[in-house]
């Protein structure tokens, strides 16, 4: 019988992840669900975590890596303390999402997908949260910020960063 691997460390989150896999009966087709839980627990998909998942679900490493990099919801890089996800869907675009993105990029010297060097802020973009009425909008640390313009965005960020 296949002996499932032991967690690489006694980090509690691995236990949690194991329970999650068990709940899915270690089914190989639960990979995406398991990666969601892993990202939720660890904040991002660390190599170590993905390898543990691959071994536990008896999936080839290349397959797990292939799946994790196909879906843009998964991130393989650690995130900053704060995150700002700018919506770049159509309605937001029509109302100036590109200018908002640019203003943040200029202010903090990072590009879409990057994190500032001091790990304060990660800048991300997403395709439509279905909140087009608030366009242009962003989600800053999980909170919806709607009807934005450049000033309002930067002010909002100043309110949460470095405090």
């Amino acid at each position: 019988m296949y002996v499932r691997p032991k967690p690489p460390s006694d980090d509690k989150r691995f236990k949690q992840l194991m329970r999650e896999m068990k709940r899915h009966g270690y089914a190989r087709n639960s990979l995406i669900e398991v990666l969601h839980s892993a990202q939720e627990a660890f904040g991002y998909l660390e190599d170590e975590v993905m390898k543990f998942v691959a071994l536990s679900l008896q999936l080839p490493l290349s397959k797990v890596y292939g799946v994790a990099t196909f879906y843009s919801f998964f991130t393989l890089k650690p995130q900053g303390k704060h995150t700002c996800v700018v919506c770049t869907g159509t309605a937001c675009y029509i109302k100036g999402a590109d200018r908002i993105m640019e203003s943040i990029e200029n202010e903090y010297g990072i590009k879409d997908g990057d994190t500032t060097e001091d790990d304060e802020l990660s800048l991300l973009s997403a395709r439509c949260f279905g909140s087009c009425n608030l366009a242009p909008m962003a989600i800053i640390d999980g909170e919806v910020a709607g009807y934005l313009d450049e000033d309002k965005t930067l002010k909002w960020l100043k309110g949460v960063l470095y405090v």
Binding site: N29, L31, I32, E33, F73
Partner: peptide, 23 residues
């Protein structure tokens, strides 16, 4: 089943692959 940020998964055969845990 949760999507994971891929527009193409709205296409029905891609959606099936995704439910099966694949790319």
């Amino acid at each position: 089943r949760l999507g994971a940020g891929a527009f193409v998964c709205g296409e029905e055969t891609a959606l099936l692959s995704s439910i099966e845990g694949k790319r």
